[in-house]
């Protein structure tokens, strides 16, 4: 049985909250962060309020923020995300920073991710019927150009598949050397995939491996819910649970668990 983002983990926090904490820790202090919607938005706010007080957030609509917004956001264009912003520029300006290699980390969601970290948000097949999905948005740009990308999604066999049917946002393509051959920037590519069961990272060959499992989750459960034979790190870790401080910030910003059910 695949767990979803709506499940309650042990010790009174949800899997959504665990994912947000793991994502927040992917941001180092002082970094320039391309912030996505939903869980990554919360992750950025948590990072800012805890270990990364001088991280700067960029949004695709042109907004640059050095202080977290004071209320829960449904979209990056919500008035609360613009009030108190340091800059409201254009999309081209923030995308230019990304292309220059100045953006340290970008967050992405996905319908499907494969063993080489390629993402599909364009079209999938369920029960052999084509399903049209919304498309790239800025995901392809972030995946191509950010120095690191971090992907968040619910863990099940259909979504973690051997190879995606459509590469909306390139990861390591078919493995080692692929990004270079495509002409993508040297310092770029997937860094982690944070799921409801664990965290995947990537070897030098571009293939994903299981780096940590969430508390209470077995390696067997992760492998059974992954659509390819997932490698496991020699020194497999347990994902550290969210700290009280991190949970406090999340619940202050999202008291009704709109994003972290």
């Amino acid at each position: 049985m695949a767990r979803t983002e709506t499940g309650l983990a042990a010790d009174g926090y949800t899997f959504g909250e665990l994912m947000v904490a793991a994502a927040a820790r992917a941001i180092a202090d002082g970094e320039l962060v391309f912030v996505g919607m939903r869980l990554p938005m919360l992750a950025f706010l948590v990072a800012r309020r805890t270990h990364a007080p001088s991280a700067t957030g960029l949004f695709e609509n042109g907004v640059l923020r050095e202080t977290p917004s004071t209320e829960l956001l449904y979209t990056m264009g919500d008035p609360a995300n613009l009030r108190g912003a340091t800059q409201c520029g254009s999309m081209l300006e923030v995308m230019g920073l990304l292309q220059q290699g100045r953006v340290d980390v970008g967050f992405l969601g996905a319908a499907e991710v494969d063993r080489f970290g390629n993402l599909n948000t364009t079209c999938g097949y369920r029960n052999k019927e084509m399903q049209r999905l919304p498309g790239s948005g800025g995901a392809c740009d972030i995946a191509c150009l950010a120095r690191r990308t971090v992907v968040l999604l619910a863990h099940d066999r259909a979504r973690l598949c051997d190879r995606v049917g459509h590469i909306t946002s390139p990861g390591f393509g078919s493995g080692e050397g692929w990004r270079h051959a495509q002409g993508l920037p040297v310092a770029s590519g997937p860094s982690a995939v944070i799921t409801t069961l664990g965290v995947l990272r990537f070897g030098h060959d571009g293939e994903a491996y299981l780096a940590s499992v969430h508390p209470g989750i077995s390696v067997e459960e992760v492998l059974a819910n992954t659509g390819w034979t997932l490698r496991v790190a020699d020194e497999l870790m347990e994902t550290p649970p969210p700290s009280d401080e991190e949970l406090q910030v999340m619940r202050e910003l999202d008291p009704n668990h709109f994003w972290t059910r």
Partner: peptide
């Protein structure tokens, strides 16, 4: 954004690295 910027600049195209390797 680049397609519209090219239109605004009056040039036929603009270069970029984004989408390299993608199915887009």
């Amino acid at each position: 954004a680049l397609a519209l910027h090219a239109g605004a600049l009056g040039v036929p195209f603009l270069p970029t690295y984004t989408t390299l390797g993608s199915d887009l």
